[in-house]
Amino acid sequence: MDAHLGTIVAGVLAGTVSRVLTLYLDYRQYPGYPHGYITHLSLGFIASALGAVAVPAILEQDYTAVTFLALAAQQFREVRGMERKTLERLDENELVKRGSDYIEGIARTFEARNYLTMACAFFTSIAYQLGKTPAAVLMAALTLVFVRAFMAGESIGDICEVVPARIWFKGPVLMVEDISFINVGLPEVREKIAREGLAVLVKPANADARATVCDLGQRQAMAHTVALLLGTKKDVDLPELTPLARIDPETGTVGLFTVPLERDAEALVMAVKRTPVLESARARPLKAQAGRLAARR
């Protein structure tokens, strides 16, 4: 056991640090439930322990011990379920819902991060076994860089141009540039929206981006992020002020309107740009020949 102590400690340390780092990256998606942090840090610790212990087990020729990794996989699937259930419950009382696509994305990310933690611990343990501390430090640093780069993901700003847009009314219909939104019946609400509302146009850079922002879940995620970062004047009895994202079917441009607490166009553009591209919404028509043909024009 003593012979492998260093190996295990190195792996557990590296794994836990990687989990802490990815939890920090999460901040935007995970608005600080202290108990959530504890849960995920403990699970991260367990994941890294499993990854780290696998190496000595193999060295001791205790091959069956590796099967507990399967147990770990089972455990992490439960993490996904737990995360999904929590967020779905909380979403019921959100004024501007995250939407099931966003929730599924977050839950899946949490599962995947545990695998990454485990892999990080596993590789660091191997490195320690082969080259002691210097190798372990180097490997840990490498895997941490990889984890950060890998988990950062794309955001709307990477695939679309976001520009401020004008809100106006065509009769009772709320318009953002040429995109029609909703019919707002009461004149005082129309005045409020015209006075206090803000809008942007999200212009996709290519056919892939167009297919991605067309997704309803992705649009809901943008509306949610905007409401989260800038606030919203919506209340249960003021559904007219719900942030909405609608598409112009001719061009694929998405218009987004909101009545924020802080009326700051620059902040709105930034909030939309920072919305993560959801895994479920991401589409790659340009990877297929038919998609490339359709995008020729």
Binding site: G171, P172, I182, N183, V184, G185, L186, P187, V189, V236, D237, P239, E240
Partner: peptide, 29 residues
């Protein structure tokens, strides 16, 4: 008409839509 629509919408947590022919509908989405 406007007043009734406003009261109904607030009481029902719903939206007022103007059909532009003198008719308002109160709808929940």
């Amino acid at each position: 008409r406007e007043r009734i629509a406003r009261y109904l919408a607030r009481a029902l947590d719903a939206m007022v839509h103007d059909l532009e022919n003198g008719v308002y509908i109160i709808a929940r989405h």
